[in-house]
C-alpha cells in the first residue's frame, strides 16, 4: 500500500508542477539556473567517465576477439553499439542519478527542513511549479550530455586501440559498419524518458521528506536507490517496446 500511495502522490506532484504557473520571467531565470546546475556542471564528470569507459570497452572487445579469423573492425563495431545503445544512455543516467539526483533531493530537502518551501506557500506561490518545473525543462537538454558521452566513449575506444596497437583504420571502419540510425533514435527516446525520471523522482523525495538535516541525507540515498531502480526497469520496458 505504501508504494501505491507514493506512486499516486508522485503523479499528483507532477500534475501540480505543471499547474498554477509562476511568472514567466521568474521561471526563465530558474530554468537557466537549473541548466547550469544540472547540465553544464555535469559535463566534466560525464566526459571523463565516458572517455575512459569507452577505452576499457574497446580493450575488452579486443581481448575477446583474438581469433585471427575475426576482423579487427568488429572491435569498433561492438564498442560503438555498446556505447550508443547502453553505456551512454543507461549507465550515464545511473551515474547522474547519484550526481544530479542527490543534488536535487538535498537542495529541495534542505528547503523543506528550513521552512523555505512553507515560506513560498505562505506567499501564495505554487512551490512545486517554482521548484520542479524548471528542473524538468532544464533536463530536456540531457540528450546533449548523452551525445557528448557517445562521442567521447567512441573516441576513448579509438585512443585505447591506437595505444594497444590495433590499426585505427580498422576501428574507424568498424564504427561505420552496419550503422542503423534508428539505434540513435532509440537511444535518445530512452534518454528523454530517463531525463524526466532524473528530474522528478529526486524532486519527489526532497519535497515530501520529513525530519531534520540527517533525514536530508537519508532522503538523498533513498532517492538514488529509487531513481536507479526506475531507470533500469524503464530501460527494459523501452527496449522491449522499441527493439524487440
Amino acid at each position: 500500500m505504501g508504494i501505491l500511495h507514493d506512486i499516486g502522490k508522485y503523479f499528483l506532484m507532477i500534475k501540480l508542477s505543471f499547474s498554477k504557473s509562476c511568472k514567466k520571467e521568474v521561471l526563465y531565470k530558474q530554468i537557466f539556473k537549473e541548466i547550469n546546475d544540472l547540465i553544464l556542471d555535469s559535463i566534466q564528470i560525464v566526459s571523463i567517465l565516458s572517455f575512459f569507459i569507452g577505452g576499457v570497452v574497446s580493450i575488452q572487445m579486443a581481448l575477446n576477439l583474438e581469433n585471427p579469423l575475426l576482423s579487427k573492425t568488429l572491435i569498433g563495431y561492438a564498442t560503438r553499439q555498446s556505447v550508443i545503445l547502453e553505456f551512454a544512455p543507461t549507465f550515464i543516467s545511473i551515474i547522474m542519478a547519484g550526481k544530479v539526483g542527490s543534488y536535487i533531493t538535498s537542495s529541495i530537502g534542505t528547503m523543506r527542513v528550513t521552512e523555505q518551501i512553507d515560506a513560498l506557500e505562505v506567499m501564495g506561490i505554487n512551490s512545486l511549479n517554482y521548484l520542479v518545473f524548471p528542473k524538468v525543462i532544464a533536463m530536456l537538454l540531457y540528450p546533449f550530455i548523452i551525445t557528448i558521452a557517445m562521442f567521447l566513449g567512441i573516441i576513448g575506444g579509438l585512443l585505447a586501440m591506437t595505444l594497444t596497437g590495433v590499426p585505427s583504420e580498422s576501428y574507424i571502419q568498424g564504427i561505420q559498419m552496419d550503422f542503423e540510425s534508428y539505434h540513435i533514435t532509440y537511444s535518445y527516446i530512452k534518454t528523454l524518458v530517463f531525463a524526466f525520471v532524473l528530474a522528478t523522482v529526486p524532486s519527489y523525495h526532497g519535497y515530501y521528506m520529513k525530519g531534520g538535516a540527517l533525514d536530508v541525507g537519508k532522503a538523498s540515498t533513498r532517492s538514488f536507490y529509487w531513481t536507479s531502480i526506475i531507470i533500469i526497469i524503464l530501460n527494459y520496458i523501452v527496449t522491449q517496446l522499441l527493439l524487440a
Binding site: C22, K23, E25, V26, T110, T114, E115, Q116, D118, A119, V122, M123, G124, I125, Y130
Partner: peptide, 26 residues
C-alpha cells in the same frame, strides 16, 4: 506576511534578492 522560526531565507539569494523576492513573484 510570515516570519518563520528559522527565518526561512532563500540560501542562494542575497539580502536584497530575498526581500525583493515577493515583489518579483507577485
Amino acid at each position: 506576511g510570515m516570519v518563520f522560526q528559522g527565518s526561512a531565507l532563500f540560501d542562494s539569494m542575497n539580502v536584497l534578492e530575498n526581500i525583493r523576492f515577493p515583489l518579483d513573484m507577485l
